[in-house]
Amino acid sequence: MNAGHIEPVFRVGLILGAILFLFVILWMLKKKKLTVRYSIVWFFAAFALVLFAVFPYIVLVLRDLLQVELVSNLVFLMVLAFVLFMLLSISCIVSVFSEKLKRLSQESALLEQRVRELERQLDGTGRESAPRGARGGGA
């Protein structure tokens, strides 16, 4: 239970995992599956993971500073906080996008109507299916 000692095999695994994570991010960037704008925060996360895996001493010091009993608890706490933050920020991004999408569809719908109206005017007398606008009232 006494932290401070980490099995070398486990440590190698951690380092490899963290590096793999970093490479997945790079690969997604290369394939344009991820834009630089949204990759920054993931880079930081991957970098932190690599750092923790290579120098577990950092986590141990952090644990002593924050007086958490188990190292694993501290790691879980940090990961959870990060995931929570990421989820919230993704909800935020989705909200902004849905607002933009809404405005785009609305403008596109109005433009389509204008084009239709203009085409009808250009067609002139050819067709008789003129949109009726329920003119009337007032009198």
Binding site: S105, S108, A109, E112
Partner: peptide
């Protein structure tokens, strides 16, 4: 369209 009503059509469901 057929009845010649004045309408706009949204490209996606909003």
């Amino acid at each position: 369209r057929e009845r010649g009503f004045r309408f706009v059509s949204q490209p996606v469901n909003l």
